Amino acid sequence: MSRAALASLKDFLQADARRLGFGGTGVADASGNLLAGERLADFVAEGRHGTMGWLPETIDRRRSPRDLWPNVRSIVVVAMNYGPDEDPLEILDRPERGAISVYARHRDYHDVIKGRLKELAGRLIARARGAGLGEHDAKVFVDTAPVMEKPLGELAGLGWQGKHTNLLSRDFGSWLFLGSIFTTLDLEADAPGLDRCGSCRACLDACPTHAFPAPYQLDARRCISYLTIETKAVIPREFRTAMGNRIYGCDDCLAVCPWNKFAQDASEAKLIARDDLKAPRLDALLALDDAAFRALFSGSPIKRIGRDKFVSNCLIAAGNSHEPEFAPQVAALLHDAAPLVRAMAVWALFQLDRREALRLRVVALDRETDETVRSEWHALPESQD
């Protein structure tokens, strides 16, 4: 292939990516194994993936891009900024409100980015054909295939994986959505990003549940994002108080990063937070039935976890609020059809009104058949002292 034509094609790629709203674009060589694949293997071997069974099933394909698609020569990695227009940690001081991770406060980023990536990839292949580079192909991925976007983003020069394991950028700080284009084109690779975390520990020290065993290591089983989104199991009691009012994800390790002084507010309209999701009242969320939940979160990534899981997260937040006004609503959810909701209602009611929770226990145990819910009732102390 003509190196001059490929260089011109790469210039076109970067300009077109900017036109489509991507703040950063880099190219990685698809050959060889990713060193991060070894870290992933250790992560899985130690059980830190929790209930995410799809991770051990896809380790081999994640190690090498060519195990996923043998014909790939280059990987284009793009980044889109979704920085908030206010301090996302301020809501943690408003216990009657629910804290939703910044990335989930508007449209599902998968839909937004994938559409742009498909357009970018299509124009790239057409441009290559018009430049006499022959017939080529491309595949796009946005967090839905066994692709290690963060290590590839570092390899493509977009930034580096910080001590919190997320990709950091000198231009956008922590707030980055990533996507990739695998292509048969042999584009010139960019220089890898350099680690600039230095001696900083801000992200590690900020974690409410101590989910980082060491710098650059994460134990997902302790991570609030995993607990509120990924696992369908009852959240362990040891983490519930530390969750505070976080009902979907957690931004603490991202928000405290000093590199965010270079971050910009999201410019893509579809990623700017909806006002009704910046600080929603917990009582309104606890009242959601399935239809209302689906309507409220239509087009949002929150919809994927389902009403029962979401309301169970909200119950933990209500319990942590210590607001007595929530107690009657929480008590009503002891009769919910979903065992997960009933289980968390037991815990939340005890936090809000110990006398009432203990009064209801005997009657509740007489009628309750679900073992998970029964275990929550049995876990309550014998007295309110």
Rank of each mutant, 00 (worst) to 15 (best):
S2P: 15
F12M: 14
L13R: 07
R18K: 15
F22T: 08
A36C: 08
G53V: 09
T58H: 14
R66C: 10
R73S: 14
A79W: 04
Y82P: 06
Y82H: 11
D87L: 05
P95E: 02
E96S: 12
A99R: 01
L117H: 07
L120I: 11
G122P: 06
I125Y: 09
R127F: 00
A128L: 10
D137Q: 15
G153L: 10
T165L: 03
T165W: 05
S180Q: 10
T183H: 12
D190L: 03
A191N: 07
A191T: 15
R201H: 12
C203Y: 11
A211E: 08
P213L: 05
R221F: 05
C223F: 05
I229R: 13
I229N: 09
T231V: 03
K232F: 06
A242Q: 14
R246Y: 08
D252W: 03
A279T: 04
D283E: 15
L285T: 02
L285V: 09
D290P: 03
F297V: 08
G306P: 00
V311I: 08
H322W: 06
H322V: 06
D336C: 02
R342N: 00
V346I: 07
L352N: 04
R354I: 02
A357P: 02
A357K: 11
L365E: 14
E368F: 01
S375V: 00
P381M: 13
